[in-house]
Design a protein around this nucleic acid. Structure first.
Length: 803
RNA sequence: GCCGGUAUGGCGAAAUAGGCAGACGCAAGGGACUUAAAAUCCCUCGGAGUAAAAUCCGUACCGGUUCGAAUCCGUACCGGUUCGAGUCCGGUUACCGGCACCA
């Protein structure tokens, strides 16, 4: 049979869609299976060869589950709010809505050309007011529950996007999206209190099946640490509270450091003698970007505060206070007690400013030469009632003492900060809040949702840091929903992460106007059974959506504490040169060209065959030919089919083994070896020059996971079964038929292979060894030696140990 | 610096409760078919070695355990915990990812 991929692929894509065979069933009695991929951002560049790697992988899972009798939900939609669209709109003077529409159409046709078994009847779009009505609704619930609040604070400001960024969006001091410089800017911002969920976001990782690296990264990002807050009094009678993870070293505190922004400085400005010097330091620190501030500086800087000192609560020793930018205002209390003997940063600082270093934990080298930071082995010294204790015991004891005397208490801290939720841009969900001069921030009534984006003249971001919406006075000016007074709408919009934080719920019931999804649909489909996506979203989307879902669980909207039961992650497809695909490198592969030249089936098979799914893999324009040949050979089977409706005995175990292997490998994301097994089997089939009807039926079903169009064609041309092979019953195997009658085993002498023999599969040790000894080759190595030991490993080898 | 991961032919990679290293595919070389090329089919394909064999070497490094190690161990060097350490804690090289002055 001639293989014309273009006509075949178009034909079957249309047939699948016309018959709706991939639509998830409503009110089904079948067990459900919800497979999910991260819905794409429809960029102007169109689909990238990286997208199909994830989509094809879960498509294969979805297809297999469908064939195994599950009611499968494999949905698709568009995460369409965002800056590139807006920037394109500004440049070309088109409405972002139009840009989005065009990009979605392009993406949709590209995706459909790949033969992915999405349920297109559930397509969603985050920019659709019917969709973002519910994004806004969730925001209102967060607001009503005190988890959304507005706060004046220093934020990350992208100088190019003219917009604030969340901490998660700042990469190496630059904007995650455009790479431009990020500076600190004080602005009033909407914040979401993700920190209220910090503990549960760590703890509930135990409930889900995620790769270890994902769990580790999330834990690392949340950064839980346990320690104590300790109150120091100052010579002015004020209280200076510090956070420390090493309260056991309190006796070794020889100075204190507060961050340049610490409020105590203003409060004591009249007492401080060197205020000019301090002001100059503050000024210099504020000019540094966040990146420079947090970069591990080799050289510590700081200024000693003149005129006020602190008193160590455990020994009443008077110690100096410094300001230094190595202490961050945003972590802990913005102040530390410095224990140079047991903290490398404090040690560096102490050396530079010639401050005393007092050893309070014994067990390391000379603390005058380097800080000793090992908690596991140290023993407390020079610490009064803590002397002789281990670090752990000393921590417990000192915290007890502090709590007794009211000088401190145990404290847990997180690196995680609240989520900066405002963006000063047009193309995002409007925040449904009205600012009233009397009532403050007032939420819109839920019946007013969706609060739609107005049409504006210009989407250009403003230099004064306000959203383009602020210029729309008839939209901005409104009445307070509470008291009716003249009031103004919030003009900031939500970040792109808002719409994607709950989209998987909408798929369960995408056309519902009364709720984000019906309780019945949520109950039936939750949680997502298998979610595949990129590692780059681990501390962004994946964390945000877990947070929202936990909140929705708390207010009894969703039935499960975690949104995704299982998460897997694919590796990147690299350019042929081994580097990341990018326009500037000129190594970008266009999927349209691949589909055009080789067909979607080849593209799919190749992306699955390319290597370990979880690792990065370079594209190869020559290797893909092997996959094309494989599919041609598959199509060619139709020319050698016989009407025999059995599996031939010679191939029986090969078929059963392949069914088993393909099924298991697919579940374990080992697509490459599953395809290799099918290639091996087809080689065995061609060696016999024929294939039976029954054999072709099974082979076609297995192939339909990877090359669904070609499989449908073979299925229908040879009339192998009713309907579509894509929804036929997945073949089963018989474990007992997976084994051959005879097997070739290796014969070793002293661990070196000397011969290979064919033996019955169930032969015992004695039989195998005596057969092995009949080999001349083996005997030549045994000559003149005594046999010490004979080893037989069933189905593998015989090893004769001789001396 | 900390956390996680990886290391196998010319290339993408297989094989780990220890058991035939390199499945499957690409590339390459030879042959068949063809006026020729492409396509297809057959053969070879880790390295050294040989006329062909034999044989030796080979899974980042070094060292071990074992009849047998890509797979297990680190006992190499030193120290600690312990009545008692091969067993618990603390090493080397290269690359990738994450975090990084988080007290």
């Amino acid at each position: 049979m001639k293989y014309e991929h273009k006509s075949i692929e178009q034909k079957w894509q249309k047939a699948w869609e016309d018959n709706g065979i991939f639509h998830a069933e409503e009110n089904s009695k079948k067990p459900k299976f919800y497979t999910l991929i991260e819905f794409p951002y429809p960029s102007g560049q169109g689909l990238h060869v990286g997208h199909p790697r994830s989509y094809t992988a879960l498509d294969i899972i979805a297809r297999k589950k469908r064939m195994q009798g599950y009611n499968v939900l494999y949905p698709i939609g568009w995460d369409a709010f965002g800056l590139p669209t807006e920037n394109f709109a500004i440049k070309n003077h088109v409405h972002p809505k139009e840009v989005t529409k065009k990009n979605v159409a392009r993406f949709k046709s590209q995706l459909q050309s790949l033969g992915l078994s999405f349920d297109w009847s559930r397509e969603i779009n985050t920019t659709d007011p019917k969709y973002y009505k519910w994004t806004q609704w969730i925001f209102l619930q967060l607001f009503k529950n005190g988890l959304a609040y507005k706060k004046e604070m220093a934020v990350n400001w992208c100088t190019s996007c003219k917009c604030v960024l969340a901490n998660e969006e700042v990469v190496n001091g630059g904007c995650e999206r455009c790479g431009s410089e990020v500076v600190r800017k004080v602005k009033s911002q909407w914040m979401l209190k993700i920190t209220a969920y910090a503990d549960r976001l760590i703890k509930d990782l135990d409930l889900v099946d995620y790769p270890e690296r994902v769990k580790a990264q999330q834990k690392n990002w949340i950064g839980r640490s346990t320690g104590a807050e300790v109150d120091f009094t100052t010579t002015t009678g004020d209280t200076l509270t510090v956070y420390t993870t090493r309260p056991d070293t309190l006796f070794g505190a020889t100075y204190m450091v507060i961050s340049p922004e610490h409020p105590l400085i203003e409060k004591l400005s009249s007492v401080i003698k060197n205020m000019d010097e301090i002001r100059a330091y503050q000024e210099a620190a504020s000019k540094k970007s966040d990146f420079e501030r947090t970069e591990v500086a080799k050289d510590k800087t700081g200024v000693k505060i003149d005129g006020v000192e602190a008193i160590n609560p455990v020994n009443n020793r008077q110690i100096p206070i410094f300001i230094s930018d190595y202490v961050l205002v945003s972590y802990g209390t913005g102040a530390i007690m410095a224990v140079p003997a047991h903290d490398t940063r404090d040690w560096d600082f102490a050396k530079k400013f010639d401050l005393p270093i007092i050893e309070v934990v014994k067990g390391g080298e000379d603390v005058q030469k380097a800080a000793f930071t090992d908690c596991a082995t140290g023993i407390l010294v020079n610490s009064d009632y803590l002397d002789g204790l281990s670090v752990d015991d000393a921590k417990k004891k000192i915290i007890e003492k502090l709590e007794e005397t009211g000088k401190g208490h145990a404290k847990v801290n997180f690196k995680l900060r609240d989520w900066v939720f405002s963006r000063q841009r047009y193309w995002g969900e409007p925040i449904p809040i009205v600012h009233c001069p009397c009532c403050g921030a007032v939420p819109l009534d839920e019946s007013e949702l969706p609060l739609e984006l107005p049409n504006v003249e210009s989407y250009e971001p403003t230099d004064n840091g306000e959203s383009p919406l602020a210029t729309m006075t008839d939209w901005v000016n409104t009445k307070c929903p509470k008291c009716g007074a003249d009031a103004k709408r919030e003009t900031d919009t939500m970040p792109q992460w808002a719409g994607s934080s709950w989209y998987f719920l909408r798929y369960m019931d995408p056309h519902n106007d009364n709720a984000l999804a019906s309780p019945e649909a949520l109950k039936y489909w939750s949680p997502v059974d298998w979610y595949n996506g990129g590692m780059e979203h681990t501390t962004l989307h994946l964390l945000y959506s877990r947070f929202w879902h936990k909140f929705l669980y708390d207010i009894k909207v969703v039935p499960t504490p975690e949104p995704y039961a299982k998460r897997t992650s694919h590796g990147m497809i690299l350019g042929e040169d081994g580097g990341k695909m990018s326009k500037s490198r000129g190594n970008v592969v266009n999927p349209d060209e691949i589909v055009d030249t080789y067909g979607a089936d080849t593209m799919r098979t190749f992306e699955m065959f390319i290597g370990d799914f979880e690792n990065a893999a370079p594209w190869s324009s020559s290797s893909i030919k092997g996959c094309r040949r494989f599919i041609e050979r598959f199509m060619g089977l139709t020319d050698i089919m016989t009407e025999d409706n059995n599996i031939r005995p010679a191939l029986e175990s090969a078929f059963h083994k392949t069914i088993k292997k393909v099924g298991e490998d697919v579940e374990n994301l080992k697509f490459n070896t599953a395809i290799a097994a099918l290639m091996s089997l087809i080689n065995d089939i061609y060696a016999t020059n024929s294939i039976t009807r029954k054999e072709l039926e099974i082979f076609t079903k297995l192939m339909s996971l990877f090359a669904p169009h070609a499989a449908e064609e073979v299925w229908s041309v040879k009339n192998l079964g009713k309907g579509f092979v894509s929804v036929s019953e997945f073949p089963t195997y018989d474990e007992s038929k997976c084994v051959e009658n005879t097997v070739e085993i290796a014969v070793q002498v002293n661990g070196k292979i000397r011969d290979k023999i064919v033996v019955p599969v169930d032969i015992d040790q004695q039989g195998a060894v005596s057969l092995a000894k009949q080999s001349e080759k083996v005997n030549s190595f045994l000559d003149g030696k005594n046999i010490v030991k004979e080893i037989y490993v069933k189905g593998k080898l015989v090893n004769i140990v001789a001396k």
